[in-house]
Design a protein around this nucleic acid. Structure first.
Length: 589
RNA sequence: CGGGGUGUGGCGCAGCGGCUAGCGCGCAUGGUUUGGGACCAUGAGGUCGGAGGUUCAAAUCCUCUCACCCCGACCA
């Protein structure tokens, strides 16, 4: 490709709307252009990168036994009513009405369509396992697109669906996909971490995300440096017995040196009402009474699908709303307003489940890890001492609904958890049978018994993956593409185009490299060296070849890797073969 | 949806009641240049996001509205 003909200009200054590194660099390099919020065009060089990523993914999916197909973007809304997932997707779905007043959705994902297909074509256990995938555009009306390609409303995704005879077979498909994903990221030069994840609107029980560590990421994950446990905070578990010490607010002298279990009697003591005037927050109450916050119970009020819910958790912990949502199996969840709290008859600041009737109570299991808690007395200015579950109050559900933090104890080994932000570049799910049951995707087993296929689904957003590579691989001068996904492998850079020797040598080299199947961006523009070098860096082409009167004196060409400072001379003779060797040696896949 | 911010040539910005709306980059033409974003000359390109209002006069003040960005809620 001749640079002079390449559609899409490089920019010295990034457009003002771009904040994240990948967004700025991709815009400056002329690889993408914004059309509207969360809607982008790929320009030729950006599209080349995307297609390379796509091919890597396709190869790995095929290798893992996947069969590529193509499902429609336009989906009858009835399919979504059949699965019931139109509720959990809600506003995120773009919907439209056709001329016959028939409601359609632009597919945000394709479990319904593929399960409906499986219903027709999978009949026997002999047809399983089945792994089918597509690489296609998805539409999701995200409430807040952000970070350029990081969160968009229209995006290209690889989605594979697995159908298996039972859970054990699903585990095997899942394992295969997990491996294929790791191969893909490695070939794209990305280092990723696999973390336990919540399955959100997709549903299902077990899922993992592949994360690229980056401050730009929207997700927070915790990990244990000792045993390797790692999870998205939405999902993360923690060991709750000792963390109380580390996180309690500066306890007063005396209480300070006691762990919560030492600080309290190990036997339940009689419930006792004490005056705590004006002491409303956990911190105030704990300080006032000279106990660690882990010796208190916190009350938090939510509205879950219009129902008022009383949530109790140990005072040193916070509520994880994703876990709470899953526990309640609700769609909308929000903190109750002050007036809603009052209307429900609660005394904010002094509330506890003790003596409360007719209200749904959800408790974190941390309330069972201790004795003699301080809890609200449900009247202004008073708390109870020595509140004990289940002696003093009952709950409707007892579950893990606590939020993990950096510094908490690892649930596996007790080590100290670290936390970091990450970009989710892939997500795999064990769906189970809830969709196949609803859409009739069943098969006959060896015994002639009809059973629903056990499903899994596995997604990678290609644009986000591309952006994640840029986030992880760049410097002050621009993008640094790994050879495997670079828009061009070689940047051919002649200097002094007024010199006929340079021009003819450059043209010859360009032809030679092209003929050898090497992807070359030939900077045939009559620009100063600085401009060309800077564009080469900005575009992130792995290998730069400079040809000038100086190099021609030695019958050679200068080579420079994007990742290195130094240059080398390479003889012009047999150049294509030599360049090919260099590229192969330095390729990461 | 809540909070904050920005809309002026392709990009970055200035102008914030007063004459013909400027500057840098980019673009075009000609010339001089050329190893890390050269220089000179000439030139093209603008409904100042939109609508309404105030005024002798509005990019500038007021009202409404739209778009985009950031934080949060939300979100595979």
């Amino acid at each position: 490709m001749r640079f002079s003909k390449l559609f899409g200009k490089t920019l010295r200054q990034a457009p003002a709307e771009a904040e994240s590194v990948s967004h700025q660099l991709l815009l400056r390099a002329g690889m993408i252009a914004q059309v509207a919020a969360g809607i982008y065009s790929y320009l030729p060089s950006g599209w080349r990168v995307l297609r390379k990523i796509e091919n890597i993914i396709r190869e790995e999916m095929d290798k893992a036994g996947g069969q590529e197909l193509m499902l429609p973007v336009l989906q009858p809304f009835e399919l979504w009513q059949q699965s019931g997932r139109y509720v959990s997707f809600g506003q995120t779905m773009f919907t439209l009405t056709d001329r016959k007043e028939h409601k359609l959705a632009l597919g945000p994902t394709h479990e319904e369509v593929i399960a409906d297909l499986a219903h027709r074509y999978v009949q026997s256990y002999r047809d399983l396992p089945l792994l089918v995938y597509q690489i296609q555009t998805k539409f999701r009306d995200e409430p807040r697109p952000r970070g350029g390609l990081l969160r968009v409303r229209e995006f290209i995704m690889k989605d594979l669906y697995s159908f298996d005879v039972d859970e054990a077979a699903l585990d095997e498909s899942y394992r295969k996909m997990s491996q294929a994903y790791q191969n893909i990221y490695a070939r794209c030069g990305l280092s990723t971490s696999i973390v336990e994840a919540d399955s959100g609107a997709i549903g299902g029980k077990e899922s993992h995300e592949f994360m690229v560590i980056s401050e730009t990421g929207e997700d927070e994950m915790v990990f244990c440096p000792h045993c390797g446990y790692s999870a998205n905070v939405e999902k993360a578990r923690i060991s709750k017995d000792v963390i109380a010490v580390s996180r309690s607010p500066e306890p007063s002298e005396g209480a300070a040196k006691q762990s919560p279990s030492e600080g309290a009697a190990k036997q339940p003591l009689p419930l006792e009402e004490i005056a705590t005037p004006e002491q409303k927050t956990i911190e105030e109450v704990a300080n006032f009474l000279g106990v660690p916050s882990s010796q208190t119970l916190k009350a938090v009020f939510y509205i879950a699908d219009r129902e008022f819910v009383f949530v109790v958790i140990r005072g040193d912990l916070e509520v994880n709303e994703t876990k709470l949502r899953n526990t309640l199996k609700c769609n909308e969840l929000r903190i109750a307003t002050e007036s809603e709290v009052a209307e429900a008859g609660m005394v904010a600041g002094f509330a506890s489940p003790i003596g409360i009737k007719g209200t749904k109570v959800i408790a974190d299991d941390s309330i069972t890890l201790g004795f003699n808690f301080i809890a609200g007395a449900n009247k202004p200015g008073y708390h109870f001492k020595n509140a004990n579950y289940p002696r003093d109050f009952q709950v409707d559900t007892l579950a893990d609904i606590a939020l993990a933090h950096q510094g908490d104890k690892c649930p596996e080994c007790g080590g100290k958890l670290s936390s970091t932000r990450g970009i989710e570049v892939g997500h795999i799910f064990k769906l189970g049978i809830f969709i196949s049951e609803k859409l009739g995707a069943s098969f006959l087993d060896q015994d002639g018994v009809s059973r629903p296929a056990v499903m899994g689904c596995y997604g990678i957003g290609l644009g986000r993956l591309l952006a994640a590579i840029v986030e992880q691989s760049h410097d002050d001068n621009g993008i640094i593409w790994p050879i495997s996904v670079a828009p061009y492998q070689v940047y051919l850079c002649p200097l002094h185009l007024d010199n006929p020797a340079v021009t003819s040598a450059a043209e010859k080299v360009y032809q030679e490299l092209e003929n050898a199947g090497i992807e070359v961006l030939f900077d045939d523009r009559d620009e100063s060296p600085g401009v060309k070098f800077n564009d080469a860096d900005l575009l992130g082409i792995p290998l730069r070849l400079t040809i000038s009167p100086r190099t021609l004196q030695n019958q050679s060409i200068e080579t420079k890797w994007r990742t290195e400072k130094e240059t080398q001379l390479l003889p012009l003779e047999n150049l294509a073969a030599e360049v090919n060797k260099l590229l192969i040696v330095n390729k990461c896949d």
